[in-house]
């Protein structure tokens, strides 16, 4: 189920390659630049953390890379496909290859943990219903929720919900994981657990990870650390933190 433009082209094999990306919000006098000439490249299997003060444009970068927003200027190559000028349908097709984890868990309230994860697995059109359900169960076991398959989000703790969200994102077998402050709603211990889990599972899948976080305690999981300030992206020496 890939659109014609989504065919992998040899762009050095990077999952994401961003060049000269700029973004503006608003029109006319209210027009304000939030991203300036951002350059970024993430390889498959690489875990990249992004930090920066509030309002500097991290989430905006994530939505652009996640094909959720139209690219205005510059170039974003996702698995070799150019997002600048890509249509709605093209972006929707590309999103199937991206797993997203949100600050809030954003689970479907009326579905059980297992069914929520299967909503991710259901995107894999080539698998039968049972296979997809088994995958959903397996992913829940992998995130340590094998005993909570039939529970509604309502009956799960914050950390458990976030783990369900991770299982859901991974069940669609993404090539790229985008996470925006996945630990914000969690206490430090379950935050740590969730991030470790995320990294381990992403490594196993060869899946690239771009994670926004404010949490200084989890920075050590990163292969590479980026810092954003006023819409500009800087490399940050991991040792310098």
């Amino acid at each position: 189920m890939r659109s014609p433009t989504a065919i992998d082209k040899p762009t050095g094999g990077a999952a994401i390659a961003v060049r000269d990306l700029s973004h503006w919000y608003g029109r006319g006098d209210a027009r304000r630049q939030v991203l300036q000439d951002v350059e970024l490249s993430i390889d498959p299997g690489e875990v990249v953390l992004l930090t920066g003060p509030s309002g500097c444009g991290k989430t905006t970068l994530l939505t652009l890379v996640g094909a959720l927003r139209q690219v205005q200027a510059g170039s974003v190559q996702l698995f070799g496909s150019e997002l600048l000028g890509a249509g709605r349908r093209e972006r929707q097709q590309l999103r199937r290859r991206i797993g997203m984890i949100f600050q809030g868990h954003n689970l479907l309230r009326c579905l059980t943990a297992e069914q929520n994860v299967q909503m991710g697995a259901d995107l894999l059109a080539d698998l039968g219903y049972r296979a997809r359900r088994d995958q959903a169960r397996e992913w829940l076991r992998a995130v340590g929720l094998g005993d909570h398959l039939g529970k509604l989000p309502h009956d799960l703790s914050g950390g458990q919900k976030q783990r369900v969200a991770i299982a859901r994102a991974l069940a669609a077998r993404p090539e790229l994981l985008l996470a925006d402050e996945p630990t914000a709603a969690l206490d430090s211990r379950s935050g740590r657990e969730v991030v470790d889990l995320l990294r381990r599972l992403a490594r196993e899948q060869g899946c690239a990870v771009l994670m926004v976080t404010h949490d200084p305690r989890i920075l050590d999981v990163a292969d590479r650390l980026l810092r954003m300030e006023d819409g500009r992206l800087f490399d940050q020496d991991p040792e310098a933190r």
């Binding site: 996640g66 959720l68 349908r89 929707q92 097709q93 999103r95 199937r96 290859r97 991206i98 997203m100 949100f102 954003n106 479907l108 309230r109 909503m119 991710g120 995107l123 859901r168 669609a172």
Partner: peptide
């Protein structure tokens, strides 16, 4: 009531 959930599904790659 379920608008954020629908939006989440769209973000996951479900078609409108």
């Amino acid at each position: 009531d379920h608008l954020p959930e629908y939006a989440t599904l769209m973000a996951m790659g479900y078609r409108l």
